[in-house]
Design a protein around this nucleic acid. Structure first.
Lengths: 208, 208
DNA sequence: AGGCGCCTGTAACACAGTTACACCGGAGGC
DNA sequence: GCCTCCGGTGTAACTGTGTTACAGGCGCCT
């Protein structure tokens, strides 16, 4: 057997990314990774340093994959919504990885490409200076925050006090339909669109 | 020496909470905890089962500590903002612990008390049924999401491409003040208030 | 005294990240 | 042709983690 092609840093990171995508971050152990690569642990350490650096590289890769934005829509409002939707979709495409980005305190890094697109749109809508910066940040915070919460919701265990808490508490008996709507599982897509649209409307519409 | 007062589940959880608050979740090892308690690891296992259960108990405690809400303000809008602010403040009071709640997929649990308060206000504002439920959820998603992002921002390492990325990219040269505003550190408090207010305004104002 | 239930401690297990060290194989100097 | 050095790999260990089998101790009831 011709031993095997020499290991490269890129190969290590790629296989590590696969492992994380398939089985979550906790499945990424140095030994498993070595086994998957058909090599020994020490080789990995030689190429990537330590686990920390490996995760850094993974995160870097993920952020780079998010790419740029081509907003669609007639009005700035529509185009901002378009950016928000695209960002959400891309973030949700790599759940484990964006969780890692978050856990490693690099959430802000994920912002940059979208931020540039948003700056453009907000500027087109007539906002300037500090006010524009605030609008951009408000939208970004909302999108990323929403995705984090949404993703969290999905892997949440059984929420034992959910329906009952609201029915029994007396607060919601004012409105049966409301109570039922809250007891039913939420539609994150709808909530997302609703709230982004609402936020954007207020931020861009009246230059108070 | 009179050996020591018998260990209780509450004592274990309390000391564990202290450890997490002071040195973060990774500092909570069973052996350290045992040393801190002046006992042996097995006693901890006897009282709390395993590490998982211990973290569950911690999280439960944290969620319980969040308590109820007494919204202040003249209009429903103001009172919603008041709830949002209180929720944010309380969440930010236990950064490590809310990170744990999040990582354990129990973010939604944190919602409940605030949710009840919001249901009341949204109802008072005249919203009903599905529309009201959506408004409540939109606000909660926004608040919790914002806190997650904000908290993340604080412990982020050096953001190497930050100012430069925006200055060099050409996008922001349309507006020097904007670029400078984005390069400067954001004021999360302001962003929070601005965006919650904007969101609430759109959600509650026009019963379109 | 005997037994039983609550609680604690000793010592081990498996598995994690990490590393000291020996080794191989080819590229270049003599 | 030989030697040395360097990039890269492998073996086997170290420490520290969660967890548990097992041996008790202490107090109370009968």
């Amino acid at each position: 057997m011709t031993a095997r092609a020499p290991l490269t840093r890129e190969e290590v990171v790629a296989v590590a990314a696969d492992l994380v995508k398939q089985h979550g971050p906790q499945a990424l152990t140095m030994r498993k990774l070595a086994a998957e690569l058909g090599t020994a642990v020490t080789s990995i350490y030689w190429h990537v340093g330590n686990r920390e650096s490996l995760l850094d590289a993974l995160v870097e890769r993920t952020v780079a994959d998010l790419g740029g934005f081509r907003p669609r829509g007639a009005t700035p409002q529509d185009r901002v919504l378009s950016v928000a939707r695209t960002l959400r979709r891309r973030l949700r495409a790599h759940p484990h990885l964006i969780a890692m980005v978050h856990e490693r305190g690099l959430t802000e890094r994920m912002f940059l490409p979208a931020q540039q697109a948003l700056v453009h749109e907000v500027h087109a809508a007539g906002l300037r200076g500090t006010r524009a910066a605030e609008a951009v940040r408000a939208v970004l915070f909302q999108v990323v925050g929403h995705v984090l919460v949404e993703r969290n919701r999905e892997r949440a265990p059984a929420q034992h006090p959910r329906e009952e808490e609201l029915w029994g508490a007396g607060t919601a008996e004012e409105d049966r339909v409301l109570a039922r709507a809250l007891a039913a599982p939420a539609d994150p897509e709808r909530i997302f669109t609703t709230s982004v649209r609402a936020l954007v409307k207020s931020l861009l519409d009246p230059p108070t």
